[in-house]
Design a protein around this nucleic acid. Structure first.
Lengths: 218, 218
DNA sequence: AAGCTTCGTGTACTTTCTACACTAAGTGAG
DNA sequence: CTCACTTAGTGTAGAAAGTACACGAAGCTT
């Protein structure tokens, strides 16, 4: 079976930038390419958009298939369409941006072992070797995340349902790559009224345990 | 000549939301469709992306061809890819967002007369009759413009090179659809240090003439 | 019980935002 | 030529938001 058109058509793909916080670092999920071009290079997960599937659905499907990640925050990032971006032929990629908490995905990323792995986004050596224009896509995604965390509630998407204020602060510090004042941070977050104090605490070593909070969706 | 692929491919188009300020109103350029589907309905200008042309270039070309508009502020808005958005078949549209000042484009829009015209974006009756999903695209573009004008300098793109502070204020009031305090507005704009006071004034009726300013690109 | 580590809290100062009203400069009418 | 009309241009006081900063509390370990 094949499909014929009067004019040439570009291929349309989705690429995914999936972030998580782990080991005090901002990580992105990358896949090692098994074939040319860019064989053995790291690349963002992604793939072709099916002909009767929405872009959002294609992104969610790839997320599931290539990374085993489901039910995460997902938003469209930008569409990359440079005619030379794929040496095999004209390919337009609609990039998506996903956030997840490390805990709920940890097992899967580990099981896929060699071909799907979390990498620090601050490893510039690795970034410069990414396949296609994936460095550009990743850089743009990091920029977007840094902006959005300042004026939206996306930060919570990187944490499990129950979290401590210290953990939330760490998320901000890692993403913004600068220290945040503890008292001012707590004041600001609590003033937003979007989190709920729980009747639980978590102790995590030889020190005072922290209160747990949960995010309150509007 | 025809082109054959192993898997079906969507068509890829660009659609343009071109804004200007005229008659104390925010206007968008629309084109009356000459053929089915949506014959005689208004639609955003747009067209197919050539196979060896970047998305940005395709947008600039359509802007030129369909609206006679050149050399304007242009940025990618969002990609709309619902499988049902075009009854003729799967079409993915990369929407762009353009800003221009009314004066420099006025002649052209007038000469094209019947098939390309500026319309108020606040005419909800008209909007609800737009072709395809163009209402959704337009609404998103207005939302983006309202946001961006608050924290960027895009407002200047809607004015000619030399302008008065009152004209700039009117741009903000029209876009935000609410009155702006004159003194606070001037204070804020001047504090940004992005405009240059000129040695000229413009008188425009039976009243005190206003100083002209120009925007200072970084 | 003493020491270690993270948790949790308040206040003073600075900067930014908001509300608000009158004089200045030109045109046109009488 | 002066008076009326219209838009241009300007400052200040109070409110709100943001920033800098230090120490006792609570649990664990030895």
């Amino acid at each position: 079976m094949s499909y014929t058109y009067k004019y040439p058509r570009p291929a349309v793909t989705v690429d995914l930038v999936i972030f998580t916080i782990a080991e005090n670092d901002l990580k992105v999920l990358l896949i090692r390419r098994a074939s040319e071009p860019f064989k053995d290079h790291w690349a963002l997960p992604g793939g072709f958009v099916d002909i009767d599937e929405s872009l959002e659905k294609a992104a969610a499907r790839e997320l599931q298939e290539e990374a085993g990640v489901t039910n995460v925050y997902l938003e469209q990032l930008y569409t990359f369409g440079d005619p030379k971006r794929d040496p095999r032929g004209r390919t337009i990629s609609v990039a998506y941006f996903a956030l997840t908490d490390a805990e709920s995905q940890k097992l899967h990323a580990a099981s896929d072992a060699t071909d799907a792995q979390w990498h620090s986004v601050f490893n510039s050596k690795l970034k410069s070797k990414l396949a296609f224009d994936h460095k550009k896509i990743l850089d743009y995604a990091v920029w977007r995340l840094r902006n959005k965390i300042e004026w939206t509630t996306v930060g919570y998407e990187l944490l499990p349902k129950k979290f401590t204020l210290s953990a939330l602060q760490r998320v901000y510090e890692i993403i913004l790559q600068k220290p945040v004042d503890k008292r001012n941070f707590r004041k600001k977050i609590l003033a937003q009224g979007r989190i709920q104090e729980l009747d639980e605490t978590r102790s995590d070593g030889a020190h005072r345990p922290a209160k747990l909070y949960s995010f309150r969706k509007k």
